[in-house]
Simulated scan of single mutants.
Amino acid sequence: MGNIINFAHRGSSKICPENTMAAFRKALEQGATGIETDVQLTKDGQLVLIHDETLERITSGTGWVKDHTLKELKNLDAGGKFDSAFQDERIPLLDELLELVKDTETIVNIELKNGVILYEGLEQKVIDRVRAFNMSERVVISSFNHYSLVLCKKLAPEIRTGILYMEGLYEPWEYAKTIKADALHAYHYAVLPEFVQGAKTSGMVYHPFTVNDVKEMQRLLQAGVNGIITDYPDRLAALLAAKV
């Protein structure tokens, strides 16, 4: 069980505010071997880690991420709504996360948030930063926008890509091959043991999301998935340690 990637979904996002440096650091403390995060572009073209295209749910700001400069976004509180103990947390840059993990073996799953807003140049900017940190071997780029993943493969064949999808995609490993993707980032209900075996035959791996129930983690591990994306990396770490 040692090769299963324990992806912390937006960091350790149940005990820290999601997609903050506090959440990423806590995830590593809890035994995460991978970190999943979301990237968007600021008004002045900077790569920031935030899930929603708008600011209201998570931060002290309002409006669209794309309409604010990095300086404006860095002035917002990204932790106080979660818990007053995290009042000083800020929206991080992609560089801050890459800097945190560059000297570890942590895998980083970067989800391109370009379904609602088609951020021009997002793919190239992400690839440039990943290469600048010499982390091409340790990054998986995922997106629900599969046109974007095709572009990523053209720009950086050496960086793995993962197709995000919900349920009911027929033989997704065959489809993934057509866009040269490397991994299936499926909603966990769309992962059955026979699917995992079909994918393995094609050299494709499953990293289902977002799996928080221990019994569901066990089901997926028994099915043979290669990684699990979870809000509770400590639960998965304990499960994997027990199976060694």
Rank of each mutant, 00 (worst) to 15 (best):
I15Y: 06
V211Y: 02
M1T: 14
A238C: 07
Y119M: 05
K71R: 15
V191R: 04
T62K: 09
I110D: 09
E194H: 04
K81A: 01
S60D: 07
D95M: 04
K14V: 12
E89D: 11
I163D: 04
A242T: 13
D128Y: 00
Y189C: 06
F24D: 05
I110L: 09
L149D: 15
R131K: 06
E167G: 13
E120Q: 10
R10H: 11
G79V: 07
Q40Y: 00
S136G: 14
A27C: 06
P233R: 04
K102Q: 15
L236F: 05
T42H: 01
K180N: 13
K14S: 14
L94G: 12
M1I: 11
V244M: 14
D95A: 07
D103T: 09
V48L: 03
M204Q: 02
K215P: 05
I110P: 03
L47P: 00
P92H: 00
M1S: 10
T37A: 06
E105N: 13
V211M: 07
F195V: 03
G63R: 15
V244C: 12
K180D: 15
L28Y: 09
A27F: 00
L151M: 14
P157S: 15
L76P: 14
M21W: 04
K102P: 06
S13L: 09
G168D: 07
K154Y: 07
I229M: 13
P233T: 02
H185M: 10
P157C: 04
A238H: 11
L47S: 01
C152R: 02
A27G: 04
L100Q: 10
L70N: 03
K113Y: 06
K177Q: 15
L149E: 13
A85W: 01
D103F: 04
Q46F: 03
L100M: 15
A241D: 13
L49D: 00
D83Y: 01
G11A: 12
E171R: 13
G121M: 10
Q87F: 06
H207D: 08
G168S: 03
L73R: 06
C16N: 11
A23C: 05
V101Y: 01
K243L: 12
V108I: 08
A241I: 02
T106P: 06
